[in-house]
Every structure is written in structure tokens, then in C-alpha cells.
Design a protein around this nucleic acid. Sequence first.
DNA 1: GCCGTTTTCGGCCCGACTGTTTTCAGTCG
Length: 575
Amino acid sequence: MKNKTIAEMFGRMADVLEFRGENAFKVNAYRKAARTLGDLPENIETVRREDRLKRIPGIGDALAAKIEEYLDTGRMSKYEEVTSSVPEGLMDLLRIPSLGPRTLALVHKSLRVEDLEGLKKALENGSLSELPGMGEKKADNIRRGIGLIERHSGRIPLGEALPIAEAVMEALFSGAQVELGRRKKLGPMSCAGSLRRMQETVGDIDILVESENGGKIIEAFVSLPMVSKVLARGDTKGSVVVEGGLQIDLRVVPEESFGAALQYFTGSKAHNVRVREIARKRGSKINEYGIFKNGKRIGGRTEEELYRLIGMPWIPPELREDRGEIDAADAGTLPRLVESRDLRGDLHVHTDWSDGAADIGTMAKKAESLGYAYVAVCDHSRSASYAGGLSHERLIEQIGEIRKINKKLKACRILAGSEVDIRADGTLDFPDDLLKQLDVVVASVHSGFKKRVTERLIAAAKNPFVTVLGHPTGRLIGEREGYEVDAEAVMKACADTGTAMEINAYYLRLDLNDVLARRAKELGVRLSLGTDAHHPDQMDMMRYGLGVARRAWLEKKDLLNCVKVEKLLNKKSIK
DNA sequence: GCCGTTTTCGGCCCGACTGTTTTCAGTCG
């Protein structure tokens, strides 16, 4: 797909245009188009062929022409002209926090800085801090920014950030309660930002708490044991770095503004821009303190109130990405998102029969404690020798073992399954007559990442005994891109054959991701949540997969996990 | 560069904080 490439080109052009000081609204137009294209689940070439380019929001005559030029010739003259006007690599420096386009232009023009090395030198020899408008503190901030991106490219996975945020909030809750004394009750506390939206990675953590005693709360916050550095402490805002380098901002807001502040700090930015636009068109104004009409406050205590006052229902945080949720809210067609309590089971776990850490009974017990009605044991198949993949005989033995344990279980049923390898030649690792005996078959690619992956996945989908395609794109967050796969073609095959596609809930996979899972739903594909747990504790990662499902607008009916066990076992009813 | 229930021209979200200034530009969310 050329979508990402074109999106990156527009993004890069936006950077350069901003750097050159051109019209900020034009810059914004490029940036908006870049984001829309990056999120577009459909192949841009298809959209072009059907002459629908200009129907994409934010794409007008000029950008459509540029896209067409690129698709036809493989080049974009405007892009080449714009990017060649600045040294290669210079724009990468914009990733450094507290170094924006204006400052970059200044250091480039007056100090001839062209890359990170040059920037470091200018910081070292003091020439940067002597520039007009610059100073020691600004230089310090840029130094810290460089350190930040060098340590860990800026963002950390949701599955690491959320437990830290929860630990901090819990400690803060008791700490702040002590500071306040017993008589004053601490108001509600919530995380905000990309963490609350359950985005797959987060840059920093935002926490909001409602109280009239900001100073004391902030004091308790900066004194928490996990804090390694205090960046700022005031009456309404505190900012710290915790062990591991993650930045956490705490904001204390008064009761009447809590909802407005929560909405504001939850974002996303694109969502908030649209919400404010609409508020303005409808005669009111929204900021982080509330919603105002003719200069008079008319609300802001809760998010529900805020949305209601501009004429729409509350929008779940996972949807707030400006991907159509605002129009849907306006039209009253928001999805009824799947919830944790809708999930009847985990459809992908491993045991010590292959490379898992716990035995079948222990995994089942964990499933029971989570309130599940079923758990699918899907150990690796024979080709996955690195993972102790089961031989034909061992799998038959395991099926027998599972049937035996099931007789002793009450609430939760173990489903006999397999995570069967889709081999490099496109065949599956077990013959059909063995697969037929299983309750659940997850078919996954674990090798030959560059060998005709699309065709292999489609072939697997066509197998009548394959229930689910496991981690269909194979990406690992922060480690590797997915396979070269035509996701759209695979989805269509799954829709045709009734094969489900996995949202692997393991925090580094989250595969399918939100955008693709939503597209799958649109095409009529059922999704399946599995934690891929290799340890009972990892079954708790279901919440990350659920986050993806909700970000993908999925409802109960879209997920295989919400189906009753009887229906699940009757394969004809699901495939 | 996009867009249109005020508009095909003239708008385009809003405010805080920081660091540098002596009234404001840049950055951020």
C-alpha cells in the first residue's frame, strides 16, 4: 500500500513548510491530510481508481493532483522541490521535544546546524544559548529533549505504561489522603491522554484529580517513592519523571471544571479541534475550564454534560480520534462498544505442553478466576520447534488430557486447540483430519515472513477447520514492522470463508491494530481476542486487546469471544 | 491547502507555560 508513503511525504512537507515559515493553515492542511491518509484502511490506489480521492476529508484539488502524480509516476515534484530546499536529516531534529520549527530555523540559519551532531556542538560550545531569544534554560531543555529521544524513541507501550499509571494513582490516592487529613475527601481521579484512549503506545502519562487543595496534592505527588526527578511543582500542576524514564504530569482541577479538563486532556487533539469547531458553530465556546455561552459558564462538571450541551451524547475515550465519531455521535449512531463483561473467554493461550510456563489446569483456573466460560489452549505445532511445538501424537494426547480435566471443571471449559503454523509453502502444519478434532484452530505465520504471506494467509482462511488467523500482520511494537501482506485481500477472504481474525492482546503485538480491525468489521469479518498468554498472569493482558477492539468500534456481535460455548463448538454455526 | 445551514473568499481551536523579554514568540497539549 502506498498510503503510508504518501502520508509520510505530506507530513514531511508540512514540517519543511512550517520550518520555512509559510502559512500555518497550509501547513495544517498538509498535516491533516497526512494523518487521514495514514489512518485510511483502504488502499489509496483503489480509491483513486474509483475517482474518490477528493471525497477523503482534507483532500482537495491540489493534494489530489499530487497523489495522482505520485501514483502515476512514482514521484511528486512538489515534494522533491520542498524537501530539497533543506538539508537531509535536518527535519528529523523536530522530534526533539522543546525544539520546534522556529528555533530549528534559527539555529540552522545563524549557526549552520544541519544535523544532531551539529546541534550538540552548538549546545556544547554555548553558541546556541547566545542566539537572540535563546538562553541557558532553553538550551537545557533542548539537551533534555535530546536525551529523551535517545533513550527510548519517545513512546512506550501501553502495556508498560498502564501498570505504572495505576501504581502511581493508587499511591497518590493514599498519599494525598494523608496530606489532606481525614476530614477532607479527595475527589475523583482519572488518567487522561493517550493512555485513557488506550492507544497502543503512549508518550507520557497525564493524571487528573479534582480537589480545592492543589498545593498539598502536588506535594504528595512529587514525594511519591517511585519519583526519580521533579520537573515542576505548582498549585495546579506537578510534573515528574519516574523510574524507567517515563514522565507523569498531574493536574489538580476544581469540581466545576473537572469534566471539561478531563475532556480536554484526554484528547485526541484532532478530536478536540473538531469538538471546538462544532461548539463555536453552535454558539458556545469550550476550553479546559468549561463550556461558555455569551461569556457565561453553562457547564463543565462532567464530560457527559459538556458533550450534551453541544448536542451530542458522551463519546467513549477510545473513539476520540476524529475518525468519524463526532458525526456518529451527532447522528445518534455511535456503536455500543464491547465491554469486559461481554467477554466469555480467551481464545489463545499456551501451556507447558509447548513453550508456556504453566500446566493446563493452572491456566484453566486463571480463566475461571477471570469469570470466563471457556479458554482455548492453543499450543504451538510441530514446525515451531524453537517453541516446543507439539507433534501429531502429542497433540492427540493433549486433547485427551483436556477432555479429562474438563470433567472436573465446573464453571469454565477448556477448549482443545492449536496454534498451527502456516508453513512457508502455504500448507498447514497438521492434516485436516487432526484439525477436525479440535475445538479451536488458530493459524499463524511464524516463519518465512517475506514468502507470499498474503497467499498463505488466504489459503489458511479457506481451510474449513481454521477458526482464526492469529496475529495476522505479525508486527511487534517498537521492534519490527509486520509482514508484507495485503491486509485488505486477506480480510476479504476471511469475510468470504467466515474465518475470524485475531486481535492478539499481547501488549507488544496488538495485531490486528485498531484501524485494520475496524476495516475488518466493515468488511464483515468477525474478530477474535486472544492473549497469547504463556503465563497465567499474561491473561490479564486481555484489557489491551479489548482497548484495540473498542478503538476499532467493535460491538459484542463482532467478537467471537462473546459467543456462547455451545455455539462456538458447533463450528458450522460460526463458519 | 481546505472548505461552505452566514461564505467560492476569508476564515481556519484555544489557552498555559516557559524563557525571554519589557510586551511577546515559541512550544506544547
